[in-house]
Design a protein around this nucleic acid. Structure first.
Lengths: 203, 203
DNA sequence: ACTCTGACTGTACTACGAGTCCAGTTGACT
DNA sequence: AGTCAACTGGACTCGTAGTACAGTCAGAGT
């Protein structure tokens, strides 16, 4: 009975790595089953079709990302109670985490699916959308907490500022992939951190 | 003899629209030839394979993007000779341009191919890389001009700041695609503009 | 008028991956 | 001993990439 969970997540592991490496369409079920050491029939036992695989991958990825953010910013808050400074610590931790991944960050499944979304059904696209809206809400809330203590030096749209966290990470990962460098995403986050320092500077 | 140019760019037009809509692999040669009203043989006469099509698409896209940046920032420079203010004007023009596209910006071929790059040969990937390095150089130069007049209020890596223009645009387009909204990219550019105002503020 | 060439059309072929169907196997639990 | 979830394995259909090649056709050069 543990086999079930085991095989399913093994499929997801292999599929995720392959999809991040070369895209969804370019990843064949053949190679997934070869990697997971199961038969084609076994694959379709777990997933109705490739679309179901995409949905499961996205769900898992989004959950992991959310858990990571929860953990990271909770730790940052423990280190400093001030909303601005805990945000700055959290971003630093995030940047360090991205940098420490030896092979570079696997890249974001969100962007990967966003650019191939006509392959997927409405459910997958909606999942993608809700994830980004969730991050917008999360970061907007944190920025509003900061703004209550530190008056922004320039007027900013808080929704857009919340989106900017996702945007900077996604954009940084795109650069990283295209340039074949390995610290662009973390550098972009550090630049965004400087932005926040300037925007909410108390001087 | 004009037929040659005509058919080739007609194929590229149709292919680009289809690829931006649903990704490269999901776009079949069948549908391209149907859209361009030619035969399959005709397609392979112009392009050896899908990889050659990808390369031609990228080349054309990068040239267009570079021409657009040349034009935009040249106009901005005409309107204000100060490097900071012409940069701010140029970004505003870019944001407005993105917003005015009625159906939303087609999306960036760079990001689209970056996430499917194992489909392509080294030439395509190198093209992608060089384009982003070119933008890095372009914007870093502009930021250095600004920094000579306005001392940055916080130390920043100029390469990374140059990359941030591309990153913010790419990231904004990813958000826009995933959220199905239509002004995220322009909002992100405006936020980046505010960043520059704060970073190079003379006060 | 004649030929040559570039830009195709049309057809037939191979190879491969997605997805379907299904009959049979295996090991754990009851 | 029987049941069920979790598979295996094979045969099939269908759509797409890519190859090959023979033929068409308009226009430029001679």
């Amino acid at each position: 009975m543990e086999q079930k969970v085991d095989t399913r997540s093994r499929i997801l592991d292999i599929a995720e790595a392959a999809v991040l490496e070369k895209g969804f369409e370019a990843t064949s079920i053949e190679e997934i089953v070869a990697g997971a050491d199961i038969s084609r029939g076994g694959f379709f036992y777990h997933f109705k079709d490739k679309n179901a695989l995409a949905r499961a991958m996205l769900e898992r990825y989004i959950d992991a990302e959310n858990a990571l953010y929860d953990d990271l910013f909770a730790r940052a808050r423990e280190l400093n109670d001030d909303p601005l400074h805990s945000m700055l610590i959290g971003l630093k931790l995030l940047a360090e985490m991205l940098e420490e991944m030896p092979t570079g960050h696997p890249g974001c499944v969100i962007a990967s699916t966003a650019y191939q979304d006509r392959l997927f059904d409405e459910g997958v696209r909606e999942l993608n959308r809700q994830a980004i809206l969730g991050w917008r809400k999360r970061f907007r809330g944190m920025f509003e907490d900061i703004a209550r203590v530190y008056e922004p030096r320039e007027p900013v749209n808080m929704d857009a500022l919340g989106d900017m966290v996702s945007g900077v990470v996604e954009g940084g990962l795109v650069l990283q992939r295209a340039l074949r460098e390995h610290n662009n995403a973390s550098e972009q986050i550090m630049l965004f951190r400087t932005y926040l320092k300037l925007l909410f500077a108390s001087t």
